[in-house]
């Protein structure tokens, strides 16, 4: 056995001289080579920028690259900056208003589309998905017109049920509601298609057994559907949270510069963008970015923690 191995080893060493590469080595080289583009690009435009942002945030730094080290001063300024706190409040408010009802409706919609008796499923699936392919810019422009105060169609329709014209753009709640509706409109269908995929993997006999036991559709929804597709729900919550924390285009186009006259639509990313690329305060904007990064990390960890808790109680 051992002599055998030695012979093999010997022939391998000799083999190196004769045939330059064994299949194993070729595989290794090919493997690393083929995955390297991703890692190089992620390194240059992913890892490096995030850490370099931390360094920039410790400087007074403008667009031309003139910089001076000022330590934590940007962060100190940030903590005392009412506009920044307002942007945090707005971001959370819009995220909450858009995510919760959206995911719930998406779930209900997916549950319905999964019912055997529904006719024209393909058409409904297609229709609810179409908003997702529209660009955010287009969505914000269209809804800007729909939510117009004087001649917007929504206020016109509301007047039929006796509601006075709502000032959507000029009030805090109106702006948040309008932006949330845009986000919901664009993403609800997408999420329901994702849920639908998960629903289709639930065995049918579970529902049949429940029906025989006398459970109605609503009970089935809460007792079978939701528990069975929980991993997918958690996935969509995490994705919506990361997306929601970085909401930018809708408020920029709907509310304009600064998120409106009293910053009613100013989100964290919009503030970051304007500090960096409108007012050229790269250092200060980097501090904003880094704080937002920490918020997102905390959110993700909380999500993970809750998920673990739920799983371990089973």
């Amino acid at each position: 056995m051992s002599t055998n191995l030695q012979v093999e080893k010997k022939s391998k060493t000799i083999g190196i001289f004769r045939k330059p590469l064994t299949q194993e080595k070729k595989d290794r080289i090919a493997g690393y080579l083929y995955i390297s583009p991703f890692f190089i690009l992620f390194g240059v435009f992913g890892v490096f920028p995030i850490f370099f942002t931390a360094y920039v945030s410790l400087n007074k730094w403008d667009i031309l690259g003139t910089k001076s080290f000022i330590g934590m001063k940007n962060y100190a300024l940030l903590m005392g900056d009412p506009v920044f706190w307002k942007s945090i409040g707005n971001t959370f408010s819009i995220w909450f208003l858009s995510t919760l009802p959206q995911l719930f409706l998406a779930l209900v919609l997916a549950f319905i589309l999964n019912q055997a008796f529904i006719k024209g499923k393909d058409f409904f699936r297609l229709s609810v998905f179409i908003p997702n392919i529209t660009s955010v810019v287009a969505v914000a422009i269209i809804f800007g017109a729909i939510f117009g105060e004087n001649y917007g169609i929504l206020n016109y329709l509301l007047s039929f049920i006796g509601i006075d014209p709502v000032n959507w753009t000029g009030t805090l709640l109106g702006t948040h509601a309008a932006i949330s509706i845009m986000v919901m409109w664009r993403w609800m269908g997408y999420n329901s298609i994702i849920y639908l995929a998960a629903l289709q993997s639930i065995p049918k006999d579970l529902y049949e057994a429940a029906t025989i036991d006398g459970a109605n559709k609503i009970q089935q929804f809460f007792k079978i559907t939701i528990p069975m597709i929980r991993p997918m729900i958690i996935f969509t919550v995490i994705v919506s949270t990361i997306g929601g924390m970085q909401i930018f285009s809708e408020p920029l186009i709907f509310s304009g510069a600064g998120g409106g006259s009293f910053n009613q639509g100013l989100t964290i990313t919009l503030y970051l963008y304007e500090e960096a690329f409108v007012r050229n305060n790269f250092g200060y904007a980097s501090a904003v970015a880094w704080v937002l990064f920490i918020i997102i990390v905390i959110f993700s960890l909380v999500n993970l923690f809750i998920t673990k808790r739920i799983n371990s109680t089973e």
């Binding site: 490096f48 920028p49 995490i238 960096a276 790269f282 980097s286 970015a289 990064f293």
Partner: peptide, 17 residues
């Protein structure tokens, strides 16, 4: 794991690069 990283936040150094 990198899908969870909010790459958008590195926008300032990316701009510099």
């Amino acid at each position: 794991g990198t899908m969870m990283v909010p790459i958008q936040l590195g926008i300032i150094p990316s701009y510099m690069i």
